[in-house]
Design a protein around this nucleic acid. Structure first.
Lengths: 215, 215
DNA sequence: CAAAGTTAATCAAACGATTGATTAATATAT
DNA sequence: ATATATTAATCAATCGTTTGATTAACTTTG
């Protein structure tokens, strides 16, 4: 009977994350969110101040457990640059697949939002990833492990872009791949290993010098 | 005084395309659109029936001039598969950059899960591209020009994804690249050639067999 | 311990504002 | 003069938010 100790506040955030991901921020009414969460409408304003405050809290919850994740890989002295890239891709895809509702909300806000506190928060969050990843790439070039004419920014955009195309544009990817890419079982069994494997091979072919590439 | 013969209807579509791309479908009110277009609110319903009808008309206008563009490349017998891929990337990026407001609307609609006529229209439009591109890739494999273990669907997702990441997520790409990626001058002078060049090199490294790759 | 006071949580109801849509009247053009 | 185009005014519905009352739990006081 052990009732979960998760606050009602946390439960609202969980539901809001899902509803936002399905309808977008403007498309998801406070009535719908509170209804789905089984709480009174006024509770949203009680806990989060406003609808925008709810969205903001939603981001803060995720970003608080995020900083620790991207640390460590880049600073490891015992890894080759390619190993770092490989680990990074793995960690990134892992994180994406573990909370894809949140990822969808980010993706939507990125597509629409232009100004304000939230836009800055999202930008910061992503740019941290960008800088970290780019650092690894530059290091690989300096070491002579990667080709010296690679476009590092575009490589970063590739990893983010492929992820977005597969995970966030789910109608399309479902049709393209021939199965429901939203189904949790498919995501773990088929999609995740496939995306990870592809990205590694793709980057390997583009990044590594001829000598290393030939293994 | 020769007033442009473009119908007022067409002018509304132009404005709506921009406003939708800036605020999203739900975020853009009919009052805002009609205000920006300098017409009475009721004109939107007069011409397009409803707000959704306006969005639909917007898509029909673009897709009508679209079919002819993707034809021809795949069926050309005198081109190598790699040349076809190269031409295809060029044509695709060209089209994207020539009407990026519309591309943004597509991107947004794709991000929020919607059902109905419009969702099907968008899906059809994109899947035409997917199928055409994939056909070229398969042909390249059969000819032995491309590696036989390439993931064709993911390659398609890569081209679409990189484009989306650079063109549609403009805050991020502007910060990443160090200049305003929305500025028309920058788009033509810097962004477009860079994306095109990168995609070609990336795909070349991944697709071509070792022998061909070495030139 | 018990009465009084205090706080956070929750609710139904209503608020003013805005939404997309419609009307009925008027203007323009053919 | 008839069809088309355009307008101001208005519609019901929905939006996000606020209110005032109620409950339950904890603190303080006598």
């Amino acid at each position: 009977m052990e009732k979960e100790k998760t606050d009602k506040r946390d439960h609202i955030l969980d539901v809001a994350e899902r509803v936002f991901s399905e309808h977008g921020f403007d498309g998801a009414s406070t009535r719908l969110i509170s209804g789905e969460a089984g709480v009174n409408m006024a509770m949203l304003n009680y806990y989060f101040g406003s609808k925008e405050g709810l969205l903001l809290s939603l981001f803060e919850r995720r970003t608080s457990t995020f900083h620790s994740l991207i640390q460590g890989i880049g600073n490891n002295e015992n890894m080759s640059s390619w190993q770092k890239v490989s680990e990074y891709v793995e960690a990134y895809i892992n994180r994406v697949f573990s909370n894809n509702c949140f990822q969808k909300v980010v993706h939507q806000e990125l597509a629409v939002r232009r100004t304000g506190e939230l836009a800055d928060k999202i930008t910061d969050m992503i740019m941290q990833n960008v800088i970290e990843f780019r650092k690894i790439l530059h290091e690989g070039i300096e070491r002579g492990e990667f080709k010296n004419d690679i476009d590092t920014e575009m490589v970063v955009a590739t990893v983010f872009g492929v992820k977005a195309q597969i995970v966030n544009a789910s109608h399309i990817s479902s049709l393209m791949l021939g199965y429901d890419t939203q189904d949790p079982q498919n995501m773990v069994d088929k999609l995740k290993p496939r995306v990870t494997d592809y990205l590694k091979k793709l980057l390997k072919a583009y990044l590594l010098t001829e000598h290393d590439n030939a293994k």
